[in-house]
Design a protein around this nucleic acid. Structure first.
Lengths: 346, 346
DNA sequence: GTGGGTGGGGAGAGCGCTCTCATTTTGTGC
DNA sequence: GCACAAAATGAGAGCGCTCTCCCCACCCAC
């Protein structure tokens, strides 16, 4: 049935064809100097002729490195009632991160191992597993405020880059967006639009992103002469946004501006506002955060703060690769500037 | 800086500790019979004591198998103007597939390599690359109607499972949903709701999913005594749905029922209907397909045909694993039954 | 007692590669 | 022309594992 595999050519074969030794072929393959041009050419011709591809297993057996990275998505334990989404993988936002990561990996000919850990057992098993699989570095995307993984990975000496600053300080490299600046952008925009009574729906305040955006917005509003901003805390989900919006509507009246900690919650808020007969943007202007696909697909399309997520993913790759190449050096961080994307909701 | 790696224990170490030979330890690790119970226990104790983990590179060097799978997402070449989404990875629908795949892989302790191919060069490079990386099997998700990959993979003898029937027939295993049955479900529902003038927005008719849903809907309607169904073709995107809806509204009047080939297009259609002052579901009932997260997040929430996508992903894993275990046997297919999820839009 | 199982265990040969080290070739200065 | 350095190449030893032999007990039947 299946085509008989004609036994992949090895270094030995190539060496025989080129009329040189295994070592010389290896030198050519690995781009090491000290090979005479004619020999090099002969080897290259032989490689082409045989269709030789290095055997990665054999190589990493001796080098102790596989040249492969893991893309680890770490979530808090799944709740039983949370069967709707399929988890973090189906979050379009992280889709963008992944996309950026893949884009940056491509020129290196690398492909990441995809791992989702959402239980404590998984987390415990991760480091040994990485060792076993010979993973050289980890790109960690964590949604877990108290995630022990960043610390544990660095302690294990695994080159790691994080998406977003860890909630618990750890000596680990990360990329992040200037949440406060983004929130300030939203504040300035709402003020400029003439909003007088501005409220906010924040993300969970134990997550850096939730806290920074909320605090940044508050500070920026204060700088605009608005010392008090009514607010409700959500959990970054659409449902959380709906509930927060209900609370806000019950407590406050006459709001004409709203900053929501992320687009998903903004989506929920938009629905509730419509149910309550509040027109957006005529009665109330709404600004989200993330510029997720949802921002484009909702009506009215959402004004939002865009993070250069793909670029951030690419930077993570750079960080890990650098950490692998130079194991000595300490962690770094790169903070990206957000941009306000004005659409119909303001 | 980094913790010094204390040189991972090897079979040799374990053997020394347990006072047996390497071969015996290997037998225990691989669960081969013919080991005396006392010895087995001694070895197991030694393994625990040393914290031994098999070196996968060494193992696969001799077994010629890595025990690892690739999750390949194959898209048509990206257009330059298509910078919005970050590609297939960020499609929540495929997020569900991936989630199902990961869930099925987990009990086996496996993690897939994530590969996105969206150029012809990528496609050409894939098979050699798989060989090099020692990938044992492929889970292929292809959005490309004329994708050469299914055929090429099977020709190369790579155990493969496809998500959705390939547009070009190929001797390859796949999972799919009974698109026609799903469309029939939608038809019955609309008829039952009392809709008199029913139209449809189909997906691209060169894609099996587009064609089957459209044809299935048409046939079912005919069975309900409605021989003619006005229709417009979209491309499975939100924008495509909007355009198709505009066309339909221009050509037809008095529609009171609509079946849309997927949720994303339904989302677009919903927006256009609102812009035209048509209330959903009062003036027109709308049914989508897929039960994507968008179906839940839009207003009104979308009645849609749900595919058991996670189950389908899990089945793909089973197929590939079976194909790896028994290289001889031919391709199989498993077709899943869709379910109608009734929400507010009908 | 002898011959022939049978189950348990060890020895050892690689898998394909890298890398050190020794060896050969070439180049340089005087 | 020679001594010596430097560059180019080959030989060979493993990396950690699996797996095929082969040996050794031990048990049974005759």
């Amino acid at each position: 049935m299946s085509t008989e595999q004609p036994a992949a050519p090895t270094l030995e074969h190539v060496a025989a064809v080129a009329g040189v030794s295994r070592a010389t072929v290896s030198r050519v393959v690995n781009g090491i100097r000290n090979v005479a041009p004619e020999r090099r050419e002969a080897v290259e011709r032989a490689i082409k002729a045989t269709g030789y591809v290095p055997n990665l297993a054999a190589r990493s057996l001796v080098t102790k490195r596989t040249g492969s990275l893991a893309l680890v998505l770490s979530e808090p334990a799944k709740h039983v009632d949370d069967n709707s989404s399929g988890g973090i993988v189906s979050d379009p936002f992280f889709g963008r991160v992944i996309s950026g990561v893949l884009g940056a990996l491509r020129p290196h000919g690398l492909h990441p191992m995809l791992m989702v850990v959402d239980t404590d057992e998984d987390r415990d098993a991760l480091v040994p597993r990485l060792r076993q699989d010979g993973i050289d570095g980890v790109l960690l995307i964590s949604l877990h405020p108290g995630d022990p993984l960043p610390l544990r990975l660095t302690e294990a000496g695994v080159p790691t880059a994080l998406f977003a600053r860890p909630a618990r300080p750890a000596p680990v490299s990360y990329v992040d967006v200037a949440h406060r600046d983004g929130a300030a952008l939203a504040a300035a925009h709402l003020v400029e639009r003439g909003c007088q009574r501005v409220a906010t729906i924040s993300g969970p305040l134990d997550a850096p992103a939730g806290l920074d955006r909320s605090a940044g917005f508050r500070e920026a509003m204060a700088r605009h002469g608005r010392p008090f901003v009514p607010s409700a805390e959500g959990n970054f989900t659409q449902l959380g946004g709906e509930r927060a919006m209900e609370r806000l509507l019950a407590e406050e009246s006459g709001m004409d501006g709203l900053f929501v900690g992320n687009d998903l919650m903004a989506l929920g808020a938009l629905g509730v506002l419509r149910d309550h007969g509040r027109r957006v943007p005529e009665d109330i202007a709404v600004v989200g955060f993330d510029d997720s696909p949802a921002a484009l697909s909702c009506r009215p399309q959402l004004t939002t703060v865009r993070q250069p997520v793909e670029d951030m993913g690419a930077e993570m790759v750079r960080m890990v690769l650098a950490a692998i190449a130079e194991p000595g050096r300490g962690p770094t961080s790169v903070i990206f500037d957000p941009v306000l994307v004005v659409r119909r909701s303001t």
